[in-house]
Design a protein around this nucleic acid. Structure first.
Lengths: 169, 169
DNA sequence: TCCATACCCTTGGAAGTCCTAGTATATTGC
DNA sequence: GCAATATACTAGGACTTCCAAGGGTATGGA
């Protein structure tokens, strides 16, 4: 979506912040903007790899989550909590995956309120193939150095914990 | 959107990857997933602060970009390139900002194809107030340690450069 | 027991992103 | 000078996200 820019727009923004007397927050502003942009780049790579499988990232995430579930089925609210997205987003994803024959809804045996989602055989094999593609074409070529990966995991893990994502030690 | 989970879902995903024999890409997978989630958290914070101003992040970014432009006006394609978003996204944002009286479209003096966008007086003051709010309520409380901010800027800068965002040294 | 409260899922709407295609204007080559 | 190509913006569609509101099911206290 456009060739490389002659100058780094985030570095420019940082300088603008400093010029306007906001030097005390210029660095975190730049870091946060860089996270936004990095996410955008990574998401685009992922979507490109998933497209041939007829999957989007949102749908893949749900498929992958189900493929790791012990019982092979998960209540929708559990999926919503684990994926950290709004329940309506799960409803949306399940609608489309169900239409594609990759998952199936079934009623919960004891709680009439909850709906279970389960992988179909087709969904399970597609999840496996899509994961293999992401592993080789995105995660194996992330472009991050190994020690940078470890550092990112530590820094972002601290951040997410402070933000209330999880409580575990 | 949900209380803290008892266990870190990204750490669990990493273990699942290792269990399935994908240990060689488990760490980058986890790091990339963590970037996704961190972006989601930061975006939610930013949107919360901007909401009282009637702004979304996409609109704010455009407003801020214009407020730093020397001439006060920018062609739409320039804005698209600097914000690194699709031209149709800029059209969308300008439509809404124009309707809110914050920017105005005007024809380019010499090139009949391009449209200039310019801040109105109202847009300029709103941009200033929104930036002050973001500075004090998001960037000043990022939750990242100073040395982690510097490290993030280096790592993500390298990544973005390798991804072709910019060419500058 | 029964009513109020809490919880689960879905529908409809607003907003953002991108893509594809179309129209209008410049630029380039013959 | 004119046709072919390139560029700039916009319209429509697919997708995701969230929020607000509604209907159905559990649960707990009087």
């Amino acid at each position: 979506m456009g060739s490389p820019l002659p100058r780094d727009p985030i570095a420019e923004a940082r300088q603008n912040w400093e010029r306007h007397g906001w030097g005390d927050v210029a660095a975190p502003m730049a870091a946060i903007t860089a996270i936004m942009r990095t996410q955008q780049i990574l998401l685009a790579r992922i979507e490109t790899v998933l497209k041939p499988f007829g999957l989007t990232f949102a749908r893949y995430e749900l498929l992958a989550l189900l493929s790791f579930a012990r019982s092979g089925a998960l209540p929708m609210n559990k999926a919503s909590a684990l994926l950290q997205v709004h329940p309506t987003s799960v409803t949306n994803a399940v609608d489309r995956l169900e239409q594609a024959g990759l998952v199936a809804r079934s009623p919960h045996p004891t709680d009439g309120r909850t709906t279970l989602i389960e992988l179909t055989a087709e969904g399970r094999t597609l999840a496996k193939r899509a994961t293999a593609a992401l592993n080789s074409e995105v995660f194996a070529k992330s472009g991050f150095r190994d020690d940078d990966v470890e550092h990112l995991l530590r820094v972002l893990g601290d951040f997410r914990k402070a933000a209330g994502d999880f409580t575990e030690e």
